[in-house]
Design a binder for these strands. Structure first.
Length: 841
RNA sequence: GCCGGAGUGGCGGAAUGGUAUACGCGCACGACUCAAAAUCGUGUCUCGCAAGGGAUGUGGGUUCAAGUCCCACCUCCGGCACCA
């Protein structure tokens, strides 16, 4: 009567079946089927699966199975992003070898991933910590080096004191280490960098052709932070050889530049300090500013600075002498490290000028009716025409008082700017730049990608350092790539993996590994002991799935052509400005080298939402709100978990959904009702009139709805459509056999185990039911339809009408139904067939 | 401050400009049971006895008709942020 189905045995049976028959091994091509590459970000082998993994892999599996049933040759691969800090830290904590720890985790997680009933092609599994894989990571790194996209340079880098390694800019969140939360320090270190900035423009410009959510595109544009402006030179009096070059996005305000500011790190500062009357004060300021962390410098918005007394620059447009200051509100690593300050039109300069009593000279008159007289408000030009230029000039001269409150930020008309006065400020940008022989340039917030990590568990950087060569070669640094034939440089075993904290990886202690002969001079040289950032490993993993066992190349051209670019990529929003940016860059660089056939790796992308704890908080062990998927699966089965996660909300929205234990009970109830469904005899069909008249219509509507909803990842409403159909089935004495088959077909992507089991029991032909059903458009509507009758837009009644009812028929029937409101009065009708008739009195 | 996104029942959420609250959870009542669980059925925005009125963050607007479009504002979430 109220039997519950035996999920444990059914799921086990089908999972074994799929495994034994290699059901989801994807051929490179399939006769008559179009290839579809559906990628989800591969997991990090952190220990065991959490609910987030289920959300990341089981819901997309619904889509993968749907596409397969639609006849596509679907590649839905899986692998492990196996190198990196978190695994290494976890292993050290447990006093284990990171390699053992990682590979044990992988083995365990494989089993858990299988328990989802997901249709992964395991034969293409990729593990980034496998030498057969990272050989190609090293190879690609060296290719980038060949193309001049890898360089070694001493720069101020982010140093995490707890993880004892350098971090990329993208891995620092609010001045803290993305991994451990420690405050990041700035250190001057020589590190390997990848020149992602060389691709900044293309990374922005190519976004426009991608089918990606606006939100991701905007975030990437924001992160790259392109701004267009000009570099202008300010001569220094008595120092003819070295002008101060500033970057500005507002060359139009040049006449209002009343002082110049250098960042404390600016190379000219020390030289100019020597000439200043207050040399000691300046040097003291530089020391204090240098001690501040990035966080302190940005958190403390109270501006500080010191004037280089006696040093004067010349405003190249106004030809006036202006003071030169050093202040740490100007950043050393952006633009030219120097700015022209226009306090009348910039908040920061305004605050600084106020504090230090510097001149504020307005050169932009705001747009709009900004001038008032007894006769009303006028624009700049209206005022000039009415009262004449002289009066206008008097008013403009008085604007300094207005500026006591705030700078004028927006666009407007130039004033106090000689021959440029009364021009529109946008036009003036180019003209003034040319006038002072400046040049138009662009600047980016994006920094080059620092990829050296002073840690053990990563891909060894395939470089060799030779002291002799470095000494001999004045320009070179003595670094040479490992010859291609020597790849991979295998990560050796160590006795002690603990990071040294001295700016060197623990690999440095393995002297027999470190010592090699120099590829250049043949003398004794040393291997680079830093390892690559994990994001390098994952920047190209999706290519390897196309040809995972290739020992000769990254992947064969032909196989790449079969699968690339990725048709659809599903993942988490945390990768918006990390992995997604890195891998787009990587792919573009490969495209430029002729290694891949197009310049963007992912045609379509979506970011999924987050599963929170039952209390609505982010799941975490310390909060005690972690849901263990294994025990839930044991209790209600994988099908119920899959379907519950699909039902929780739309998959392609970056929402946060609390895990609701009640919700999963509801889905399990639904599946039990499916199990108990009374089905008509074999061969019974809808046409045999054992059905209600509207069942056929509902069935076809459901096919349409479920198809469209899965395709657009609105899994929640697809599930609800299946529930509605089941509710209808249960009102029948028995479900016609053919309708039942269609129902199981629609259910199969969501609850594959149960659907396969029931299909087998119903003796449905494999070939017939393992494909997606189509709907008949003619059956979507019935003979009559219920429409709403409105009076003046308010719903007053509803009536049954023939679908073909004319406006006249509808309004006559409608009038009858709402006589009470219209009382025989004149009405005008607005008729929307099938929906509504609105009678307007 | 700048750039995105979102505000709908007790909860997750649904709604091509056309009957707001589908579907599910929860809750209440009923059936079955000695009883409970499970299962099934009925009800469940709000005020009102009813007729009817009011509700989609707030205030305006466009429209025959607005959760949906436009304007202003409030709140929350995400990203960027002394980037000149």
């Amino acid at each position: 009567m109220n039997e519950r189905y035996d999920h444990a045995n059914i799921e086990k049976k089908w999972q074994e079946h799929w495994r034994e028959t290699a059901a989801f091994e994807t051929p490179d091509t399939k006769e008559g089927a179009e290839n579809f590459y559906f990628l989800t970000e591969f997991p990090y082998p952190s220990g065991n699966l959490h609910v987030g993994h289920w959300y990341a892999f089981s819901v997309p599996d619904i889509f993968a199975r749907y596409m397969r049933m639609r006849g596509y040759n679907v590649l839905y691969p899986i692998g492990f992003d196996a190198f990196g800090l978190p695994a290494e830290n976890a292993a050290i904590q447990r006093k284990l070898n990171p390699r053992t720890w990682t590979f044990d985790n992988i083995e365990y997680m494989r089993g858990q991933l299988r328990s989802m009933g997901a249709s992964f092609d395991w034969s293409r599994e990729v593990i980034t910590a496998d030498p057969a894989y990272y050989k190609w990571t090293q190879w690609l790194f060296l290719k980038l080096y060949e193309k001049g996209l890898v360089y070694r340079k001493e720069t101020a880098v982010n140093w995490c004191p707890k993880d004892k390694t350098v971090l990329a800019n993208e891995q620092v969140v609010n001045g803290k280490c993305e991994r451990c939360g420690s405050e990041v320090e700035q250190r001057l270190m020589s590190q390997w960098n990848i020149k992602i900035t060389a691709y900044a423009d293309r990374l922005i410009d190519d976004l426009k052709d991608l089918d990606w959510p606006k939100q991701i595109k905007d975030a990437q544009r924001n992160w790259i932070g392109r701004s267009e402006g000009a570099e202008l030179n300010f001569p220094i009096i008595g120092h003819p050889m070295s002008d101060i070059t500033v970057f500005t996005t507002r060359p139009d305000t040049l006449f209002g530049a009343t002082y110049v500011v250098l960042a404390p790190e600016h190379p000219l500062v020390k030289e100019l300090a020597d000439k200043a009357e207050n040399k000691d004060e300046v040097l003291r300021y530089i020391v204090v500013a240098g001690k501040k962390t990035e966080l302190e410098r940005t958190e403390n918005k109270e501006k500080t600075g010191v004037e280089l007394k006696g040093v004067k620059a010349i405003n190249p447009a106004a030809k006036e002498e202006i003071p030169v200051w050093v202040a740490d509100y100007v950043l050393g690593n952006y633009g030219t490290g120097a700015i022209m300050a226009v306090p009348a039109h910039d908040w920061r300069d305004f605050e600084f000028a106020k504090k230090f009593n510097l001149e504020i000279k307005p050169v932009i008159f705001p747009q709009g009716k900004a001038l008032s007289s007894g006769e009303g408000d006028f624009t700049y030009f209206e005022f000039k025409e009415r009262y004449g230029e002289q009066v206008l000039n008097t008013v403009v001269a008085g604007m300094r008082n207005v500026l006591i409150a705030a700078p004028i930020i927006g666009p407007g008309i130039l004033i106090n700017s000689d021959k440029f006065s009364s021009k529109n400020n946008e036009e003036a940008k180019v003209e003034i730049t040319e006038f002072v022989e400046g040049r138009l340039t662009k600047q980016y917030h994006l920094r080059d990608w620092v990829v050296s990590r002073q840690r053990f568990w990563g891909v060894p950087i395939p470089m060799i350092h030779c002291e002799k060569c470095a000494l001999r070669d004045a320009s070179g640094q003595g670094y040479y790539p490992v010859p291609e034939s020597d790849l991979p440089v295998v990560l050796p075993e160590l006795e002690d993996y603990v990071p040294t904290g001295e700016g060197k990886s623990p690999l440095a202690k393995k002297t027999d590994w470190v010592q090699v002969s120099c590829p250049h001079c043949g003398g004794v040289a040393e291997r680079e002991t830093d390892t690559l950032d994990t994001f390098v490993d994952s920047s190209w993993y999706f290519l390897r799935y196309a040809d995972p066992k290739n020992g000769q190349e990254v992947a064969s051209k032909e196989k790449l052509k079969n699968w690339m670019p990725v048709d659809f990529y599903s993942g988490g929003s945390e990768h918006t400005t990390m992995h997604l940016l890195y891998s787009r860059f990587w792919y573009k660089a490969m495209f430029d080298m002729g290694l891949v056939g197009e310049s963007e790796p992912y045609l379509k992308r979506m970011n999924r939402g987050l599963i929170m704890g039952p209390d609505g908080q982010k799941m975490s062990k310390s909060k005690g709100n972690v849901v263990d998927p294994d025990s839930v699966v044991a209790e209600v089965g994988a099908d119920a978990v899959r379907m519950y996660l699909a039902f929780i909300g739309p998959y392609n929205e970056v929402g946060a959904y609390p895990w609701n234990p009640g919700g999963i009970v509801g889905v399990r109830r639904f599946l039990d009702r499916v199990w108990r469904l009374k089905v008509g005899p074999q061969g019974s069909t809808l046409d045999q009139s054992i059905s209600r008249s509207n069942l056929d219509m509902l069935l076809h509507q459901t096919i349409k709805k479920v198809s469209e909803d899965i395709a657009s990842l609105k899994m929640n409403t697809a599930v609800s459509a299946l529930m509605i159909l089941l509710n209808e089935f249960e009102t029948l004495s028995a479900v016609p056999h053919d309708a039942y088959r269609i129902f199981l077909q629609l259910l199969a992507p969501f609850a594959p185990h149960l659907a396969h089991e029931l299909a087998e029991r119903a003796n449905f032909e494999r070939a017939a039911w393992e494909q997606w059903p189509s709907f008949d458009p003619a059956k979507l509507a019935g003979g009559t339809v219920t429409i709403a009758v409105q009076v003046n837009g308010k719903v007053r009644a509803s009536i049954e009408l023939s679908v073909n009812a004319t406006k006249e028929e509808a309004s006559a029937a409608g009038r009858k139904a709402v006589e009470k409101w219209i009382k025989g009065g004149e009405t005008r009708a607005v008729y929307v067939p099938g929906k509504v008739i609105n009678l307007v009195v």
